[in-house]
Design a protein around this nucleic acid. Structure first.
Lengths: 213, 213
DNA sequence: ACGATGTCGTCAACACTGTTGACAACGGCG
DNA sequence: CGCCGTTGTCAACAGTGTTGACGACATCGT
């Protein structure tokens, strides 16, 4: 049992790996210690508590969102791509959605995301106030899509499609007298991937936010 | 120490009260038992586990969403009002957002919400497939707005506005060279109430979802 | 070169969580 | 009356995040 030496980066690495493999809820300090090959409490030499560790994890995940974005003067593909990436990052860590509201020790990567979105909306012709509103709107949609899809995200493609099918059949089996539209729409519910549905919703939201004069 | 007799309804009542007073995270079975004046484990005679109790809580909260909705042939005010109510219900129990994805023992009140939204979208002239997409879009936005606002919701009005102000000053204090738009928009960020911002976003989303031919 | 200093992994323990099984008091039924 | 199922009580278990004392190690100043 060699005395492995840790670092913040190494801890964040295996934390993300564990979350990817077993889900965020299954992340435990003891399990983390075992995966690191050290005593669980060794992590506390590098992070004050679990919350700070998770903040570092979110910072790592959010850091990849804004890099290498398409840089043309077309605002819309850039916004869509940024939101897709943000959604994927949020999906990796469901609690991250609520952790966004932790008050003014904000993460640098969050500032980068905010700046990028505001810049694109201004480039689209919105004044600064409308850009701020658009920013809030887009973030809310993205967070919501990630939150709803979070539970399904840990399943395999096969399981997920099975789940969607089961879902649809539940809708289809409702009493047509009480839920006529739901029964009629059952085949169309949860169609395609969750990301497809999100991109569609985002497109309609952008249509409404940036009127094509 | 009189042997108080419980019921599912009474347990759900005080559970909601505790969540309202101390937040959902602070809800513990021992605390619940104390508030009920019984042994904590007595709750397990009425609910299999904490998850089932929370499902009953969400069913109770979601049940109020669809009742007494404005019933004219104008679809838009009805959709907005329903989403506002849904958002408020979700705010009361943050975990409820993710709990929505718990698979086919769905709650009756969820079906009622789905049916109502689909009906209104069909009344707005959408075909059934577009109505399903609109349903998903609107739900995602509502859940996201609730999730983001959840942390602030437990604070008093005074605390909340202080928090918003602090937030804005953090944005304003950023390096203008690196984050020009954010600094410029700082005064416009988090303006008004969170519900105002949500209603605005929902309006723009509906504009995009239901084109005015 | 060597002792001091501070970093960092280890171990035991604490307070807390949800949950279970044995026990007993109670009320309704034959 | 006597039985029995319902339901509150109690002790206990496994698991969680976290803390403080301990000790090995590397680094640094003289």
């Amino acid at each position: 049992m060699s005395r492995a030496t840790l670092s913040r980066d190494a801890i964040v690495d295996t934390t993300i790996r564990l979350i990817r493999e077993h889900g965020a809820d299954a992340l435990t300090m003891r399990g983390l210690g075992q995966a690191l090959g050290t005593d669980p409490t060794a992590v506390y030499r590098h992070f004050r508590d679990k919350a700070e560790l998770l903040r570092a994890v979110s910072e790592r995940l959010l850091g990849t969102v804004t890099i290498g974005l398409p840089d043309g003067h077309e605002w819309r593909p850039a916004v869509v791509e940024l939101c897709r990436r943000l959604r994927r990052a949020l999906l990796e860590q469901p609690r991250l959605a609520t952790a966004l509201q932790f008050g003014p020790p904000l993460q640098p990567s969050e500032f980068a995301i905010t700046e990028e979105l505001l810049r694109r909306f201004c480039a689209a012709g919105l004044d600064i106030g409308a850009a701020a509103l658009a920013y809030h709107s887009v973030i809310e949609l993205t967070v919501g899509s990630a939150a709803i899809d979070a539970a399904m995200h840990s399943m395999s493609d096969r399981e997920r499609s099975q789940q969607y099918t089961r879902w649809r059949s539940v809708y289809a089996a409702l009493d047509p007298a009480e839920y006529p539209e739901t029964v009629a729409a059952s085949a169309a519910m949860y169609r395609g991937t969750a990301e497809d549905r999100f991109v569609h919703a985002l497109g309609r939201l952008l249509d409404g936010l940036v009127p094509t004069r």
